[in-house]
């Protein structure tokens, strides 16, 4: 029986006071173990911020705010010239394109799963999408490097380049030559990676819509699409935005999937088919062999990334918390 504790046995059958004090000691110890473990989460966050600031300090002192808008990255120059503009541009552009692809597709899958899909197909498809989230990012990177990159460079890229050749603005965005390693390839891989996050959160929040609202809309003759557009999406807007921001936070910091296929070029090009780099890819490819100011500059890049993702993820959480309050949890 659960009530027969070892503590009682140890204390002997008659010594009630001793048993009680053993209980008390066990209680207090366990309370503090759990409390300290919980506080360790705060210590980890503090440790991350502190170690990044300490590591980045020499670079901050050397370059100041000019770090943010310098494009040149020449760690072997004497003294090294370092600027974050290239990696920041790459990070933002790849994440932006990834979200452009992943948001409509992710929402489409969520609508399919909640409104259209026959019951027996729901579990397998839902599971397949969630397994996509489980595949380690290095596998995506490797697959992008060996399979997707060559495929895109031989088919999709030449096609887009040809279509938009000579068109102002778009012509510059889709400029040639096709490349195995490019911002666009990285963005597409990112889109596939964050798809499951958008889908699973959207499915969850779609389920919070009271059936009576949807039934009322169907009752007055709405089509499925009209129900989704006028009832489901307005009702769950905050949750969807939260899910999208969560996915954005993932996309901004994703490393291994990107580092193989982005080309590690610090030059900014207007074409999305040109090689580029992201903050995380730059750290991954250079950090182990860096030292001194170069290493400090890379840590400063990491600090920028952490601040960026922190605010995006914090925003996502606030949105989702608002929805939970509304749902009455």
């Amino acid at each position: 029986m659960a009530v027969q504790s070892d503590v009682i046995d140890d204390a002997g059958p008659y010594d009630r006071a001793k048993a009680l004090s053993a209980f008390k000691l066990g209680d207090v110890t366990f309370y503090w173990i759990t409390r300290l473990s919980a506080i360790s989460v705060l210590l980890i966050l503090g440790g991350i911020i502190l170690s990044l600031i300490v590591g980045a300090f020499p670079a901050m002192k050397e370059y100041g705010f000019a770090f943010l808008w310098t494009q040149r990255w020449a760690p072997s120059a004497d003294p090294p010239v370092l600027g974050a503009l290239g990696p920041m541009y790459g990070t933002l552009v790849t994440s932006f394109i990834a979200m452009l692809i992943a948001i409509p597709v992710g929402l489409g899958i969520a609508i399919f799963l909640t409104e259209l899909c026959p019951q027996w197909l729901r579990r397998p498809i839902g599971m397949a999408i969630e397994l996509l989230a489980g595949i380690p990012s290095i596998i995506y990177g490797m697959w992008g490097f060996f399979v997707l990159g060559p495929f895109l460079a031989n088919t999709f890229q030449p096609f887009m380049i040809k279509i938009f050749d000579g068109v102002p603005v778009l012509g510059a965005i889709f400029a040639g030559p096709p490349s195995y390693l490019s911002l666009f390839n990285a963005a597409l891989i990112l889109a596939i990676m964050v798809l499951p996050f958008i889908t699973s959160i959207s499915v969850d929040v779609f389920k919070t819509v009271p059936p009576v609202l949807k039934e009322a809309a169907y009752g007055v003759g709405c089509t499925t699409w009209e129900v989704v557009r006028s009832v489901v999406i307005p009702y769950t807007r905050v949750g969807i935005i939260g899910g999208v921001m969560l996915a954005l936070g993932r996309a901004l910091g994703e490393t291994m999937a990107v580092s193989f296929i982005i080309g590690n070029s610090f030059r900014i090009s207007s074409s999305i088919f040109a090689p580029g780099t992201t903050i995380s890819a730059a750290i991954a490819s250079e950090f182990a062999e860096s030292d001194g100011l170069h290493q400090s500059g890379l840590i400063l890049l990491g600090l920028l990334l952490f601040v960026l993702t922190f605010f995006v993820l914090a925003g996502a959480r606030l949105m989702l918390m608002r929805l939970e309050k509304k749902a009455g949890n």
Partner: peptide, 21 residues
């Protein structure tokens, strides 16, 4: 709240943290 952020924090940042610490 902090834990939810750490849950999705970029893993390369964790690497930088352990490198420094």
């Amino acid at each position: 709240f902090i834990n939810d952020i750490l849950l999705s924090a970029p893993s390369i940042i964790i690497g930088l943290f352990i490198y420094g610490a």
